[in-house]
Design a protein around this nucleic acid. Structure first.
Lengths: 108, 108
DNA sequence: ATGATCTGCAAGCCTGGGGTTGCATATCAT
DNA sequence: ATGATATGCAACCCCAGGCTTGCAGATCAT
């Protein structure tokens, strides 16, 4: 199981871009090519293509040849894995905080 | 309860920065002031202070006065909430994908 | 009161990376 | 064969934002 290949901030950086996120949600709804996406978003096809390679490198999306075009499908596993990591960290912080609060109450 | 004030890409952008992430993990371990953090990270105190306000605005961190200094504590709830949202989205993508695969198999 | 610390504000520098345009190349339809 | 459509590569522009330096205002200890 997992040698955290995630490198949290890196994956987050990929997801943080507004345009990339829109692309991702579109692709999450149905598999689309760069050109198809260019028809729905207010940016050039080249820009979108670039974003798609970034997303693919991050394992968030996967290319699928369909004739002369290349459609992309969203991969949920990476996202869920990241979600899991963040959740663990978040819970840890709260755990610490609550522990401190309990100590403080005991001092009254 | 809150009507998802999260705005995913925005929160992600806050978390995506390398320095900010380091600050966050440090603060997650123990409450620290901007000056204290400046002693541990290779950036100026002012830069860190800036990051802290960004983190605070995002609800990821909370200021706590302690004499003449201001310590910050990490808030796990926001992070966990974000994690939850991402997980839902990720699962949804996989659900769609698996549904399609099942249809494909049926066509054999 | 004086020095030592800590925070806050402001101006300015500079690189990363998102976007565009232009052109070359490959695959499909007729 | 020819046009239409899709991808790939490259050079270039441009600006958000991360970092620094410098200075001023608070708060604490002696």
């Amino acid at each position: 199981m997992s040698g955290t290949s995630t490198e949290v901030p890196a994956v987050l950086a990929v997801l943080a871009d507004e345009t990339r996120w829109r692309i991702l949600t579109e692709v999450g709804r149905s598999e689309l090519s760069a050109s198809a996406l260019a028809g729905r978003l207010p940016v050039s096809r080249q820009a979108i293509a670039r974003h798609l390679t970034v997303l693919a490198d991050a394992g968030l999306v996967e290319p699928v040849r369909a004739g002369r075009e290349i459609r992309y499908r969203a991969l949920g596993s990476r996202l869920s894995a990241l979600a899991s990591e963040l959740d663990v960290i978040g819970r840890e912080w709260d755990r610490r905080l609550n522990a401190l609060k309990r100590v403080a109450e005991r001092l009254d």
